[in-house]
Structure formats: structure tokens, C-alpha cells
Design a protein around this nucleic acid. Structure first.
Lengths: 251, 251
DNA sequence: GTCGTCTATAAACCTATGTTATATTAGCAG
DNA sequence: CTGCTAATATAACATAGGTTTATAGACGAC
């Protein structure tokens, strides 16, 4: 493909989980790039797709419905697969919707079959992606169980800052997202109006200023502490893998 | 091993995901059975284990801590692996604690290496287990975001009834669990006292009678409707897999 | 049996969040 | 610029759930 995919998979970090030839194999398997405007429904849950999608630019929501109520059960960022369950399973338990304009790269299921059989490390890397998704889900469960509204909102942003790989690049004062207050509400299990109240409080207390989805702050460490954000669950560090797992020691 | 493991993996259902010889291979790899009394800490999150555990009897909690507060982010039942992330990753993002007395079967990581390399269907089945865990997590996120206290509690029980494979066996009037009200609170993101209030309301409204963790009802369908339980996210049906995935068509 | 401890129940009160209603602002088409 | 629409903001009120405190049952140790 004619876009820089390598290093994108698994959120742009953790390059060490695959060796160069495997990265190349994976990269070559993508054969399509799609762009969608805001709010497009990308996958409906029917499970009738025969391709998997990776986010290249932008954000997508994983959505479930409780009656009329929309629940956002996850957010995917560049480097994340959005529909891996669809590769193995006959049904996808969520819908995928573009959060703002988004660019995806896709590859056919039979190509995944092929490269996963050719390279066990790639098969493991796909499993790894699912393991990390599950860990992020567990963190969301935790914050929904135990944090109040302002902390939940800030936690979303601190998590995204890390997943987007922005933590290391000096102090980023602004994190831009396409999220509406309604979206934050559906992520945090709150009403849109209460999100507005919570944002007003965060502003009044000079913790953070969230305007049209963009978060402005002078002190990310303070934010992380406020929201009790501990990045270990993201497995972003260099040594997330057990010795000998993946990357060559298999043979 | 001298216990009936076959059919336990993946919650006793979905036997069709593996062929007999693969089941046998998997079964033979377990070489240890452990029993723990209530509330034993089985894994601490340090990631220094070199074995994986499968629940054979009883329940275990997956636990995280927000400061002093205990969060239960998942429950494992017979047939579930409880620490698969530990096989690939150098760190486990949750603790594992026995919920009531529990019996586990374990196998060494190097045995997983061996059988996963011998049999690609087994490697896929392990991935499948992680995919289903993630789907269950998404459901918990949904119920925490959008259901009130009584419905969250009932949802826990309806989910367990399905995962334990009790739905088909005629009308089961009682579902026994070792859960304290404190445990239900930590699963549902509530205070123990409010769980008590919600249980009292469920009793008064004649929806269900929960006593010492055991749920009594005359109408499971009513419960499922009440808690908006839709079992599809559990992937329990016969045809959860895409055509040709696993089970032999690979070669 | 008695004691002690953990669990469940209950009431009073307080706070966070939901709901309804009504501005106000930002973005955009023409 | 005007006017339309969606998003954001603010207030008043209602309610689910948290907190504190007290009491009553279970159950095990002895």
C-alpha cells in the first residue's frame, strides 16, 4: 500500500512485537483504503463482511443499543483494528460508526488466513491486539463502576493521549477530538446535560478546559492523577511481552 | 488428566470449535489440579506465573483496585481461562480471587506453546476465548452505562445462567452463587447498601428473590426481559463461527 | 449452648445525576 | 449579511444512589 502502515498497527507503538519481514507481510496484505465522513455507519453487526478494517486516520466508535439508548462501548484510534471478531465469528456484537471523518485500510479475510498461516508471529500479534482491547474494556468497566462524572471524562482524554502516543512528545497543551458532548455522555454513561455540567466544573476548578471536543490543559500529570489514570493497562511499554513470545524464538 | 475437561473449555458449549483430536491434545496438556477456599488470591497481577489456569468448579473474580475501592471487572465460570493475558504479556492487569471454593486445572506456558504450534485450530480457539471475553466486557460496559441498579443485578444472574449452560435444562427455579451483596455491589458499581435496597425492591415487586447469593424465580424469561438480556453477545449458539474457520478446513 | 464476626436489613439524610425547559452560541448555506 | 440548524449552556426540579448509623440474623470457634 502507498501509505505508511508499518508502525500504525497496535497504536503506533510496540513495533518490537513483529520483525521487519512480518511487518512487511502484514502491510502488503492491505489492498484498499476507504474514507468516510462523520457519523457514517461502517459496520452494522450483521457479520456479513468479508474484510477487516484498520483505522489509519481519525476515530471510530464501537456502539451498542439498549432500546433507544446509544451506548459507546469503545473507541478505536489509528492503528486499531475495528472488527477483528468478524474475522472469526459469524456475528459482530457492536456497530462501528465514524467519529468525525475517518480513513481506514482494509484487507480481505482470506488474506488474514494466508498471512496468519505463513507467520505464527502475525497470528499472535492479532491475538495480542484482542488481549489489549479486552484490557481497555476492563478499564472502562472500572471507571464506570467507581469514578464520578468529571473523572470519567478526563480519563477518556488521558487514555486517548496515551493511545495516540502523544505523552512523550513534550507537553501537549491541546488534545483535539471530534467528540460532541453527547458522545462523551454515551461513553461515560451520563446524560449530555450532566456532561455539560461536569465540563463547566472542570473549567471552574481550572482542571481542564474542554471546548467542542478539544481538551486544553497546562498540566497533563495533574489530569492523570485527577482521573486516577495508570497507563499500565495499555501495555504501551517496550517490554510488554514475555521472553521468547513472538518475534522469532518460536521456530 | 483424570477429570472431565473436554467440553468444559469455552463454557461447556461450542464443542464444535475443535475436532476430537484437538480436544484431546488440549486436555492432555493440563497436568495439575488446584483447589482454593473462598477469597483466596490466586493471581496478583505481577505476571510472574508460568502457568495458565482454567476453572473446573466454582467461580473466580477478576479484580482491579481504584485506590481502596475494589472493582470486580469480570467473573469466570467453569470452562473459562482466567489468566490468558499472562501467557503472552509480561503483566496481568487484574488480580484473580476465588469467589467461594474453586477448583482449577492448570497447564504450563510451554505446553501452550507446544500445542498451539502443533495445532493451529487450538491457537485460534484460544484467541476465540479472548474475543468472547472482550464481548462480555462490552456488555458489562453497556449495562453499567445504561441500566439501573435492579436491572444490573438481574443481568449478572441471567448472564451467568446462560454461561453456565443452565438455560436449556427446563425451568431452573434457583441459581446458586457464592456472591455476597458486597460482591454484587463491586460488580455493578454500586454501594453494598444500595444493592440491598435493590434486592428488597426486586423481592417486593415479585421479580426475583435473591438470598445469600442464590436467586429464586419462577420465570426466567421475565427476568431476561426485565434486564434487557440478549444472549447473542455470548456466542453460545451452534453456528458462531464463520464457515471454514477452525476445525480443519485450514489445511 | 455462648460469644464474636461477618452479612443482611433498615431508616434518615445528603449528593450526584437525570429530566424538562429555555436560552445562547457556533457553524454554515444562501 | 440573514437565517437555519446543531451544539452548547444554564436553571429548576425530581430521583437514584451514596453515606452514616443502628439493629438483626447467620455462622463458625470454642
Amino acid at each position: 500500500m502507498d501509505f505508511p502502515l508499518t508502525g500504525k498497527f497496535l497504536a503506533g507503538r510496540r513495533r518490537e512485537v513483529l520483525q521487519d519481514e512480518d511487518w512487511h507481510l502484514l502491510e502488503e496484505a492491505f489492498d484498499q483504503v476507504l474514507e468516510f465522513p462523520d457519523a457514517t455507519k461502517i459496520q452494522s453487526g450483521a457479520g456479513n463482511e468479508n474484510r477487516c478494517c484498520l483505522v489509519v486516520e481519525g476515530f471510530v466508535f464501537k456502539i451498542r443499543w439498549t432500546g433507544q439508548q446509544r451506548c459507546i462501548v469503545g473507541v478505536a484510534v489509528p492503528g486499531d483494528f475495528i472488527d477483528l471478531p468478524n474475522y472469526t465469528l459469524a456475528y459482530l456484537d457492536y456497530e462501528v460508526v465514524a467519529a468525525g471523518p475517518v480513513k481506514l485500510a482494509t484487507l480481505p479475510h482470506y488474506e488474514i488466513d494466508r498471512i496468519a498461516q505463513t507467520s505464527p508471529p502475525i497470528a499472535r500479534a492479532l491475538w495480542l491486539a484482542t488481549l489489549i482491547d479486552a484490557s481497555i474494556h476492563r478499564q472502562w468497566i472500572e471507571i464506570l463502576e467507581r469514578l464520578d462524572a468529571p473523572r470519567r471524562i478526563i480519563h477518556i482524554y488521558t487514555e486517548l493521549s496515551s493511545r495516540l502516543g502523544l505523552d512523550d512528545c513534550g507537553i501537549i497543551h491541546c488534545l483535539r477530538t471530534p467528540f460532541k458532548q453527547r458522545d462523551l455522555a454515551d461513553m461515560c454513561g451520563l446524560s449530555a446535560i450532566h456532561v455539560n455540567r461536569a465540563i463547566a466544573k472542570l473549567r471552574a476548578d481550572e482542571i481542564a478546559d474542554i471546548r467542542r471536543g478539544d481538551l486544553y490543559t497546562s498540566d497533563w500529570d495533574k489530569l492523570r492523577k485527577f482521573a486516577r489514570f495508570d497507563p499500565r493497562y495499555l501495555y504501551m511499554s517496550e517490554n510488554i511481552l514475555r521472553d521468547g513470545v513472538l518475534g522469532g524464538s518460536q521456530a
